[in-house]
């Protein structure tokens, strides 16, 4: 009987994690934020520069395997313009399902082309994946409705589950391929010392400082691995979500400063999905809304 009750409780928790209630304003805020991020990536990404990629260096990702070569600049720019306009329409909630879907599709193709140069690129994948539930998000939203409802909650909740699992999988493979040595060996020391091989380092002296202090590089790598491995717990303990989002911001900022790796889209996505911004804004600007005080 106890086992059955446990399964029921787990099922209930999973149900809440994926389909639980949120306010209409949070749904609109997150979807608008995702559309804005997609629009920025599509509009300002260097995709048009891919046009000169020679055939010998074009290695299409599976979803673009039908392409015989990198598309011309006209096609890529057309995708960027279309995706940007669609994202703008989604931000202003004009035909939100169609416009959000079109922006997401253009972004998928452009990011796919960016990854068709011989290396799996992850820079855009968190944003692409967390946006998936919003492809079928409610179109008619009563923004004045302050009552958290499941019909508004499921895109936000399932998007958060997807993002948490992605971080968890990243930690899982670190542990699987390198074991605890990833955290407690000299791994991060050499990552930092080899740093320039990965990209333009922003603050080489700081990287060197960390690399030459065992407690700093081992502490940082152990914390980083623990952070990724435990990220999925925020699915059930949602009050931890803002904390994990802030840590994600710090870690992605650190990889940019120390290694020159640009993961700002990951940091922005995590902050958007895991922080209840309407509640935060309401608490800063005026009397708390009806949803204030709920778990983030």
């Amino acid at each position: 009987m106890q086992g059955g009750a446990g399964v029921n409780r787990l099922g209930q928790k999973l149900d809440e994690a994926l389909w639980g209630p949120e306010t209409a304003v949070r749904l609109v805020f997150v979807q608008t934020g995702l559309a804005l991020l997609i629009g920025i990536r599509v509009a300002f990404g260097p995709y048009h520069k891919l046009a000169g990629t020679p055939a010998a260096l074009f290695d299409p990702v599976p979803i673009l395997a039908f392409l015989g070569g990198m598309p011309g600049e006209g096609v890529i720019v057309a995708l960027q313009v279309t995706g940007s306009l669609a994202a703008a329409a989604a931000v202003w909630r004009r035909y939100p399902r169609v416009s959000f879907g079109l922006a997401w599709f253009c972004y998928l193709v452009l990011a796919g082309l960016f990854s068709s140069r011989g290396k799996v690129m992850h820079n855009d994948l968190l944003l692409l994946w967390t946006a998936v539930p919003f492809l079928l998000a409610p179109v008619v939203v009563a923004r004045g409705d302050t009552e958290p409802r499941r019909e508004y909650g499921w895109p936000v909740r399932s998007s958060a589950v997807i993002a948490a699992l992605i971080y968890g999988l990243a930690g899982y493979h670190k542990l699987g391929r390198s074991g605890l040595d990833w955290a407690f060996g000299d791994n991060l020391r050499y990552v930092l010392l080899w740093g320039p091989a990965y990209g333009p380092v922003r603050w080489g002296e700081a990287a060197r400082w960390v690399a030459e202090r065992w407690w700093a590089f081992k502490g940082a790598s152990a914390f980083s691995l623990l952070f990724e491995l435990t990220f999925p717990v925020v699915v059930f303990w949602r009050r931890l979500q803002p904390l994990y989002a802030v840590i994600a911001l710090v870690l992605h900022g650190a990889t940019w400063v120390f290694l020159g790796l640009d993961y700002w889209a990951w940091a922005a996505t995590a902050l958007l999905v895991f922080v209840d911004w309407p509640v935060v804004i309401a608490s800063l600007t005026g009397p708390p809304s009806a949803s204030a005080g709920r778990g983030a």
């Binding site: 990702v61 599976p62 979803i63 998928l108 990011a111 796919g112 990854s115 799996v120 690129m121 992850h122 994948l125 692409l128 994946w129 992605i166 999988l169 990243a170 899982y172 493979h173 670190k174 699987g176 391929r177 390198s178 074991g179 040595d181 990833w182 060996g185 791994n187 990552v191």
Partner: peptide, 12 residues
């Protein structure tokens, strides 16, 4: 891609 193993920096 976009299905991936998320092996970001997984080799020590």
């Amino acid at each position: 891609w976009p299905l991936t193993a998320w092996k970001l920096f997984s080799f020590a």
